[in-house]
Structure formats: structure tokens, C-alpha cells
Write a protein that binds this DNA or RNA. Structure first.
Length: 125
DNA sequence: GCGGTGACACAAA
DNA sequence: ATTTGTGCCACCG
């Protein structure tokens, strides 16, 4: 297996590393990040990891992470949602008027990203 | 250690 | 296609 050592860093740090590796113009679902981070079911915690980042050092393309339905998660923060939409459009990501994008076309290649033992859970992709 | 919280996912209705 | 309910996890009091 090509999984890295998950215990090397905290879940949050793993999330940051993975998100940092998402190429411009591509996106990933929270669930995808969770899987790569080694926890298939921790999609929700991924949001927390990015929340914790809020405002910190730039360089983390947090806007490239959306929900599995191909839409931006509002969760009450319209400010952030708008910014995220603009940043994605700026990278060439096509978003419909309903705020949805084609995952099949803009989803980043999982095999090209850091992976923390996701395969141990019997998953493959 | 326990219980709430939240940028989620998925199945069911 | 939409709306609910339920499961799951890391963080923070």
C-alpha cells in the first residue's frame, strides 16, 4: 500500500497537507479529503480543520474543498461562501447558476495526492 | 472524561 | 429532485 504514516501528524495537519496539494482549477469533496487523511468517515471533521485555519497563513487553497454534491457549503456564513465561489471561478471552475459544478470534470486526481492509509480500510480508488 | 458543535455524507421517504 | 434523520469525527469547554 502506498499509505503514509498517519500517526506522524495530527488529523488537522494531514488535512492541510492534502488540501495544499490540490491543483488550481480542481476541487475535492470533504469526504475525499477525509479518506485521504485516513478516515473515511471524518468528512465533517475536515470542515473543522479548515475552520481552524481561518485567517491563518495564506497558501492553503481551502476554497477547493466543497461538499460531495458539488456545491459550496454555506452553513450560515454567506461571506465565506461568496469568496469561495469567486476564488473558484477565478481558477476557471465552471459553476452553474444553481451553484453547482461538475465533480466528474473538476474533481482532482486522488491518486496524485498524499494518502494516509485509506487503503487499509478496504477502500481503493 | 463527557457532551455540544459544525465548511459533511448517505440512505430513506 | 428535496427534505429528514442518523452516523461519525476532531475540537473545545
Amino acid at each position: 500500500m502506498r499509505g503514509l504514516d498517519a500517526s506522524a501528524r495530527s488529523f488537522t495537519e494531514r488535512v492541510w497537507e492534502i488540501v495544499r496539494a490540490i491543483p488550481a482549477g480542481k476541487v475535492l469533496a470533504y469526504g475525499d479529503v477525509a479518506m485521504l487523511a485516513g478516515d473515511r468517515k471524518a468528512a465533517r471533521a475536515v470542515g473543522g480543520a479548515l475552520r481552524a485555519f481561518a485567517g491563518d497563513h495564506d497558501g492553503l487553497p481551502w476554497h477547493r474543498v466543497i461538499n460531495s454534491q458539488g456545491t459550496i457549503s454555506f452553513r450560515g456564513d454567506l461571506q465565506r461562501a461568496n469568496l469561495q465561489r469567486v476564488l473558484l471561478l477565478r481558477e476557471g471552475v465552471v459553476i452553474s447558476e444553481l451553484g453547482r459544478l461538475e465533480m466528474g470534470r473538476f474533481r482532482a486526481n486522488l491518486r496524485a495526492l498524499p494518502c494516509y492509509g485509506a487503503l487499509d480500510e478496504g477502500l481503493d480508488f
